[in-house]
Design a protein around this nucleic acid. Structure first.
Lengths: 196, 196
DNA sequence: AACAAAATCTAACGATCGTTAGATTATTTG
DNA sequence: CAAATAATCTAACGATCGTTAGATTTTGTT
């Protein structure tokens, strides 16, 4: 039969380890998360992790890479779901909503990044930041276009606005609980804050 | 002579240790900061810290307490400096400005809290969060009053707005660099985002 | 100057960490 | 079923951690 790419045993185990690592890193950060904790969460011994990963640092890098790429993919996918008549502000709100939903409902990976980044070795941190840049530029372009169309409030500095909005979103895992506004509703709030 | 309260030798050393701890905690967080690092930064040996503090946890608690109380005091002081004719929005902007200035220009302590809080033992974390509550309520009251006066954008959910604004401010240490907008100018940006 | 108190240093403890090598078990292949 | 490969376990290593006790040095008092 055709060599269809079904996840091999090893690949599934690796994913299980990544999930366990993301949960653990999210909870306690990079330094405080021990490989013994992560291994237990994945149902194995600490030494066994080294069959799948070279080091703790590499394991952390894969978790963070999945988180960044997943965030970006979620947003791009949300753009595809928009109707052709969507305004730039609609696009922005959809991007907010996708990112918030990813942070709050879907992924330990993205939140793990926020809690880990400052504790990781500098070269690793730099690589993740480079990956995040694409992500940030995407929002930057949308904001720029919205400003050209005079769809957002006058008198706002674009690069500051972008970072303030990022902060508002990235901080939500610190306080978000259910019941309360949903990620989509929070996205609407953010839209109202920037629109003219 | 009168027993004027001049800082004793011991008190000044303790402050020096707290400063060193705040710098170190800010840089690498709670777990990754070793007492040997902090001691070296303060110009002494690790064991000597125990003459002034009971434990690493207590040292961290004092750093965070100074940070929270300092933030709050800075904001209250900014309120006193306002003229009597200041509007609620003026008060909010002044509070934003004070908090941002404290975070970005003045204090390692406040930023240390943001980087430490998730790694500290739960009872300690709870105590700090309780202390922060007063702080959050202050902003909440100002926002409530502003909404009553119809000074802020309609259709905004107050409790969400408060947390989103907090997020925008607390995230600034992640990206703020000079040159760029000053803390006061960032406060103005935030004001524009919420005002009608 | 002599003594008391305060402050710091030295050296070690038990615990935990990331990591490794080799033995062991589970799975796949012929 | 047997051999080969994949996956995991066991047990230990050196390093580093928070912490402690006791010696030592510095400072303050008479």
């Amino acid at each position: 039969m055709a060599d269809q790419h079904v996840a091999s045993k090893s690949e599934r185990t690796k994913d299980r380890i990544l999930d366990a690592a993301a949960r653990t890193f999210r909870e306690v950060g990079y330094t405080a998360a021990s490989l013994r904790d992560i291994a237990e969460e994945a149902g194995m011994q600490a030494g066994s992790l080294y069959y799948h990963f070279e080091s703790k640092e590499q394991l952390a890098e894969e978790v963070m890479t999945v988180g960044v790429d997943g965030s970006y993919a979620t947003i791009l996918s949300a753009m595809d779901d928009l109707s052709d008549t969507a305004s730039t502000l609609d696009k922005l709100e959809a991007a907010f909503s996708a990112h918030l939903s990813y942070l709050l409902d879907q992924s330990d990976y993205a939140v793990a990044i926020l809690r880990m980044l400052h504790q990781t070795p500098k070269p690793l941190r730099e690589r993740i930041l480079v990956r995040q840049r694409t992500f940030g530029q995407f929002f930057g372009q949308l904001l720029e276009q919205a400003q050209k169309e005079e769809a957002i409030k006058p008198g706002l500095d674009l690069s500051s606005l972008r970072m303030l909005v990022f902060g508002a979103m990235n901080w939500t895992p610190e306080w978000y609980t259910t019941p309360g506004l949903s990620p989509a509703e929070l996205a609407t709030q953010l839209r109202r804050m920037i629109e003219r």
